[in-house]
């Protein structure tokens, strides 16, 4: 759960903040990427991600819950028809905030908040192999089994599996990334 907001509301009053966040979320889902101040982007992230979680469930109740925030039916339809299904294999972390240079005029710190448009690394690997990781199977199995005698084993094993996988993935990523980043850099330079 995100931490509760501290300090003053955006725009001065709670109702004004709700309206501003609703408008920001509408723009984010409409365009996929918006540039706003860093404070607004940080407040928008939990609001937008909660809406995407609702859109992933996709039933009428959740659609009405989203309609309470986003008043544009076209955007709600896009959210439920395109954005929600796209994030089906991602558990949270649907948006990315990148800081950019301060705004001319009032020097306010600006940021770009965007919907993450890549698939997760595990999802790509699973799609390529057509299988699921044993860790995920074990995780779901142990969650069901828990409460029985196997608690110590069930709690230990997933951690070990995660740690080993984390190490192996971290070993692989820089080796691959170093070559790919160079290629990406060259490509982007050619484009620009």
């Amino acid at each position: 759960m995100p931490t509760p907001t501290k300090g003053a509301r955006l725009g001065g009053s709670p109702s004004h903040e709700r309206l501003m966040l609703a408008n920001l979320a509408t723009s984010l889902f409409e365009h996929g990427r918006i540039k706003t101040t860093e404070a607004k982007a940080k407040r928008l992230r939990p609001v937008a991600e909660r809406l995407i979680t609702k859109s992933k469930k996709g039933d009428l109740h959740n659609r009405r819950e989203v309609m309470k925030t986003i008043r544009d039916k076209d955007v709600v339809h896009k959210l439920f028809a395109e954005i929600g299904p796209f994030f089906a294999d991602r558990n949270g972390g649907y948006t990315r905030i990148t800081k950019t240079m301060p705004r001319k005029g009032d020097n306010a710190p600006m940021a770009v908040i965007e919907l993450v448009n890549e698939k997760t690394a595990t999802a790509e690997a699973e799609a390529a192999r057509g299988t699921r990781f044993a860790k995920d199977e074990a995780g779901s199995g142990s969650a069901e089994v828990q409460g029985g005698k196997e608690e110590p084993q069930a709690t230990e094993n997933p951690e070990v599996a995660e740690s080993t996988q984390g190490v192996s993935s971290s070993d692989q990523e820089p080796a691959e990334g170093s070559r790919e980043t160079v290629e990406n850099d060259l490509e982007s330079k050619d484009e620009s």
Binding site: T98, K99, T100, M101, V112, G177, N184, D185, S188, S192
Partner: peptide, 21 residues
């Protein structure tokens, strides 16, 4: 460029194109 900020000249951050150069 300032740290932790998308590059103002090329618009990239962490290998991603974030803003237009």
């Amino acid at each position: 460029k300032p740290p932790h900020v998308a590059c103002p000249s090329c618009g990239q951050y962490g290998g991603r194109q974030v803003a237009e150069p």
